[in-house]
Structures are given as C-alpha cells and as structure tokens.
Design a protein around this nucleic acid. Structure first.
Length: 474
RNA sequence: GCAGUCGUAGCUCAACUGGUUAGAGCGCUGCCCUGUCACGGCAGAGGUUGAGGGUUCAAGUCCCUUCGACUGCGCCA
C-alpha cells in the first residue's frame, strides 16, 4: 500500500492507509496500547484496540524510536478524546497491522525533549539521534529552506552559482590552512580554501559578472561558540558596481528573507543604519556593536552596517617575525580604498589615514558578513603589496595570476560574504552555531561521531611519500 | 598556547565541614491496568564517582598529574 504522510492523514478519514514512521511514544494501557507515530511531516496517535492477541503481542514488542510501517483506518476521535490545538488532535489511526522495519535498542538519551539539556559530547557522539529532536529538525529544515530562498532570489537577480575548488593553494597571512598532501607531487600540498576570495574575483575577469556560492570555508584555528573549523559562507561578487550597490542588494535580500521565513521577527531599523568604524569603537568599544533597543526581545533583529575602516595598521613585528613591512591590512588586501583616498594610496601618503571601501554587516552584536570593492587595477594592487612590504618574488608566486588577470580585462567589482551559520544561529535564537549545523565538530576540532581526525595506514603514508616524525609541541 | 567552569547510574541531577551500605526523577526489566496523551499502580535491576597517583584512621569531597566537554582570551586577511 502506498505510504501516506502523517501530515496528510486528516484528508484520509474513514479509509485504511499505511504510514512509515518512528515510534515517538508508547502508552501501554493493558488491553489497549496507544502510540504516537512520527514522520517528517508530523505526529499522529495510533491505537491498538483489544481483541487481537497477535497484534497486541506485536505492539508490546515496540519501543521508542523503532521504525515501523503501520496500516490502519483513520478515525475521527470521539469528542471527549479530542486534543484541542494539537495537529491531528482530532483523528487517530486504529492499527490493523504492524510491520517492524527496524528495531531500536534503548536510546542513550531521550530525543522527545530539548536536547540542549543533554551533555554536548553525548549529543555529538549520537548526532543522528540528536537531529531527530523537534528543535534540531526545525533548525536543519529551515536552514535548507533559507538556502533555497537565497538561491532563487539571487538567480532571479541574474546571479550564477559557481562551485570553486576545495583543493587549492596555501597563501601567506590570514588564517592557518588545512593542508592535503599531493600524492603525485611528493613534498607538495594543496590547501583547503579559507574562502573562495581569489576564485570569485577571477570569475569577474571571466565575465560571469554576478556570482554566488554557498561555499565551505576551512580555517585551522581554534573554535568558539560562533566559530567552527569548517563553516559555510554565502559568498558573492558583482561586476560594474560600487559599494552602495552591493550593500543595497544584500540589505534587500536580508529583509525579504526575514519577512518571508521569520515573520515573527521585527527588524529594528530599515534602512539599516551605517556606523563608521571610528564611531563604533568610540561608542561601543568594538566593531560589531549590539544596537538593539531591547536586548531581551528574542524577536528583535538589529542589523547594522559598519563602514570606513582603516585600510592599514602598523605591524608589531615582535609578535610576528614573518611580517616584512611596517604595515598590515585590517581586512582584505584585495580591497580598494574609498575613491577619495585612491590618490593617497598611489602616492603612499598618509597611509594610516587611508580608508578602505570595506563594509561589514552586523546583527545583534555579531559580525554576520563583510565585503568590499576590490582593486581591479594592477598598479593599485601592486601598491598595496608594496606598502605591506611583500617581496617581489613573493608577490609573483602568490598573486601573479591575479595581476596577470587584472591586466587582461577585469571589470571593477566588489562583493560580500555572509557567515551563513552565524546568521542562522541568530535567526533561531541559538547560543552557538553547532545548533544550526548538521554535523559540527567539538571545540578541539574533533568529530565525535566519525571519530576524526584519525591516523592513516602505513600504506597510505607510503603512497603519499610521507614519513611521520611526531614531535611534542614546545 | 593560556584561563575559567564542569565530569557521580543509560539521561538529568543530589550527596553539609572529609565520616556508616553513594541517593532521587526519568529511562530500563517484570507483573497489573479498556480511552491514554508527562497515562497510572506494584516490584526490581542498574555505580571502576572520567583515568592514574598522593594526603588521611577515613576521599565523590582535599592535593598533583592526565583525559574529555563547554565558555572566553590569544589566534581567526
């Protein structure tokens, strides 16, 4: 018999149907047994009536979280047994046959609860169970819906989704790279991308003009509540734009996303306020101010643009002996200064005062995105590298392809990247991004379910021409 | 790398100033129960107190080491 979703059972009253479901709860009454069956669309009460000893015996065998196929007749409940306000509270399934598809042993923790009360390590070890809980189901499903909404929206706006490589090249500065040994080139390594920054800019050279991607980004740095070694950015880049264009499009997208998928939320101020980096530091002491009028209102969203960041800051060489120059960049070396400061850059004048076109977007005290207009001219980009004190050969090795591309017809362009997990965390009022990720890692970067990272075999090492000489860190 | 909090039954927790046989709720097992929906009733099983060492007549409790989880700092273009 064709499977009917539990959410659609109300349309099948007085008929016999089959469902595929988990046993959510069981209430054994002696002669009668009551169940709640659950599938991805909802829950329904099942009742095993007295009289059929065989069926009763099968019902007794079932325990929570067993997977079953149930055939039965959908009845309107007797009036006194209607559960008001509950989905399917006015119907029940009178069980006629039970097929046990997969028996569940006793669970390590109850899933019919707010699993945030369960120890984090147990949840992560049995993540597939944790994900069955109502809250996690909602988080993961809504995330998928939002993903789809953004895809449709940007596609309508003439964007093309392009996948960029995961096996790429290690670059100096920035976060520590995760690296992958290259079997065919002993001693050489790929790096996993910290972001698709260079690829997306080169897609502008390639004439894609409007690009986006839900991009996996990997950084080998220590975790936080809002940081994981592996995370998702909504990455985008546009040609022939100025920063107002990028900001306006993203602002509109965020507003529509919220109104469509989180109608219970209220955005504090539209258009989003703009605060300069200087004002933010003076007024709030950080560059991701929480400007909510009422910090106790769980449905208040206070978006804010932070602009006018300094491009460069002096390096403290005692901290980082690898730094060659007197200056380092605050955000992104590929950024372009604001138009008024281009001449200062080119003449290397008043370097400390040069303002970058960088714009960050913050929400309730978290940075949820950042971007800029890029330097698409070879001379300007070279000047930045010179100020940063990079050696000529280093520029050639690491950025030669960018400089070449920028001498072969690259339009002015700019973009932005959202920290998608952080945005979802805030939209769901979750205390950390693990709650909106299907399979997150622990603070120490371990996957407790898969038990990674793990050692590899001698054969694998040999194929990679690698030999291990483990040293204790000093 | 550093700091803080925590680690007791399958889960969530309790156990006073170091003091008798480490308790409770849920879950689990068995029996009873014909309208339950946090079902109910009776009975029962279940512990290397994360691990190792030390102090003490005596350690879940104090000290040291170690492992793990979480939170923050450093770090994170």
């Amino acid at each position: 018999m064709k499977r009917v979703y539990i959410g659609e059972l109300a349309q099948h009253t007085d008929t016999t149907v089959s469902i595929g479901a988990w046993v959510h709860t069981k209430r054994n009454q002696g002669k009668m047994v009551f169940f709640e069956f659950r599938d991805m669309t909802g829950k329904v009460q099942g009742v095993v009536l007295p009289g059929n000893e065989n069926l009763k015996a099968q019902a007794d065998e079932l325990r929570d979280e067993c997977v079953v196929e149930i055939t039965g007749i959908i009845n309107k409940r007797p009036l006194k047994n209607v559960q008001v306000g509950k989905v399917n509270g006015d119907i029940e399934m009178v069980v006629e046959s039970i097929s046990l598809l997969n028996k569940a042993e006793v669970l390590p923790f109850p899933i019919a609860s707010d699993t945030r009360e369960i120890g984090e390590d147990v949840r992560l070890t049995y993540r597939y169970l944790d994900l069955r809980s109502e809250r996690m189901q909602r988080n993961i499903r809504k995330r998928g819906e939002v993903l789809q909404f953004v895809r449709n929206y940007l596609t309508e706006e003439k964007f093309t989704e392009v996948e960029t490589p995961l096996l790429t090249k290690s670059t100096p500065e920035g976060a520590r790279d995760f690296v992958v040994p290259a079997r065919l080139y002993p001693g050489s390594f790929y790096a996993l991308p910290q972001s698709p920054q260079q690829y997306k800019q080169l897609l502008m050279t390639a004439g894609i003009e409007r690009y986006f991607q839900f991009a996996k980004c990997l950084r080998d740095e220590d975790s936080r509540g809002d940081r994981q070694p592996e995370f998702t950015q909504l990455d985008m880049e546009m040609s022939f734009v100025e920063k107002e264009d990028v900001m306006a499009l993203n602002e509109k997208l965020l507003i529509e996303l919220v109104s469509k998928h989180y109608p219970e939320k209220r955005i504090q101020q539209i258009p989003f306020p703009h605060i300069s980096y200087k004002d933010a530091m003076e007024k709030y002491g950080n560059d991701r101010p929480d400007i909510r009028e009422d910090k106790n209102d769980p449905n208040l969203l206070a978006f804010c643009w932070i602009v006018d960041f300094p491009f460069f800051e002096r390096t403290d060489k005692s901290d980082n002996p690898d730094t060659f120059g007197d200056w380092t960049f605050t955000h992104n070396p590929f950024s372009r200064p604001i138009p008024e400061h281009m001449s200062n850059l080119m003449e290397k004048k008043n370097i400390e005062d040069i303002i970058t076109s960088q714009y960050d977007i913050t929400l309730n005290g978290y940075e949820i995105g950042g971007g800029s207009i890029r330097n698409h001219e070879v001379g300007a980009l070279m000047t930045v590298f010179e100020i940063l004190g990079y050696r000529e050969e280093e520029i050639k090795t690491n950025f030669g392809h960018m400089l070449t591309a920028f001498s072969l017809g690259t339009p002015p362009h700019g973009g932005i990247a959202w920290g998608f997990d952080r945005l979802m965390m805030l939209l769901h009022n979750e205390p950390n991004i693990r709650e909106v990720m299907a399979f997150p890692k622990t603070g120490e970067g371990k996957d407790l379910m898969m038990q990674s990272p793990s050692t590899i075999s001698d054969k694998q090492l040999k194929e990679l021409s690698l030999e291990l000489k483990l040293k204790k860190h000093v």
